[in-house]
Design a binder for these strands. Structure first.
Lengths: 127, 127
DNA sequence: CCGTATCCGGCTAGATACTG
DNA sequence: CAGTATCTAGCCGGATACGG
């Protein structure tokens, strides 16, 4: 780890630089994103309505927004089938898969430190 | 991973339950906490003013608040010396140490995915 | 030196209603 | 079925001033 990087920052303004941890938090943080990623890692493909049901409480506003941002960050892929009624499926990209081990470590750490009765049905969890 | 826990949740209301990933995010998320943890992991003890200097831009309000919350969550220990002028030092607890490998993995993932010119002098970083 | 007190703007997330 | 469009409340983080 290194925190004395100020001197080397001649190329860009500090404000434009992105801290890698902050980047992680931006991509996978917030109220719903980690849960969505965990759900998607569960099986190949998921439909919008299935994700919504599993999340149990999320609004359309937030789900659509979160999915769009995750897609923009390259974490998942949106596959649209032109059928009636419409069908849309979401699946993790390789980048998205790559974040899962860390999310699992976070969950493990959380379990160990919050007590074993911590469990959230709305959300991701490790048995 | 398991996401179908709704049926087993008779003991508590769902709202009272804590998802382990969300717990992690509550403890180490936000704008400054991960950086503070990384700075503290750098060496045994740190004074308030030293942390502030390293963070380069944080206000007293936010630093004091973040430190207080991290202490309340058992991530760090506050050691006060009754001297004039006052001296206060902060050090990671065992729980705090335990989160560091995950923070490092997050940083590694961030670096790999955001490009190698991503570097933030304000913040934690891996060479 | 190490904070607290107070005020404030902007963003995040939710409620509600509507659509191709 | 899979979303948009508005509107709104509340919290997060910052600015500024002051205190033991």
């Amino acid at each position: 780890m290194n925190f004395d990087g100020e001197e080397k920052l001649n190329i860009k303004k500090k404000e434009e630089l992105i801290c890698p941890v902050r980047y992680f938090l931006e991509v996978a943080g917030g109220k719903w994103k980690s849960s969505i990623l965990c759900i998607l890692s569960d099986c190949e493909c998921h439909r919008y309505s299935r994700i919504k049901r599993k999340l149990n409480g999320i609004t359309n506003t937030m789900l659509a927004k979160s999915l769009k941002e995750l897609e923009a960050d390259g974490m998942l892929e949106r596959i649209q089938y032109n059928e009636v009624p419409p069908r849309v499926e979401y699946k993790l990209t390789e980048k998205g898969e790559g974040i899962m081990p860390i999310l699992e470590d976070m969950a493990k750490w959380g379990f160990k430190n919050v007590g074993e009765d911590a469990f959230c049905g709305k959300c991701n969890s490790i048995k």
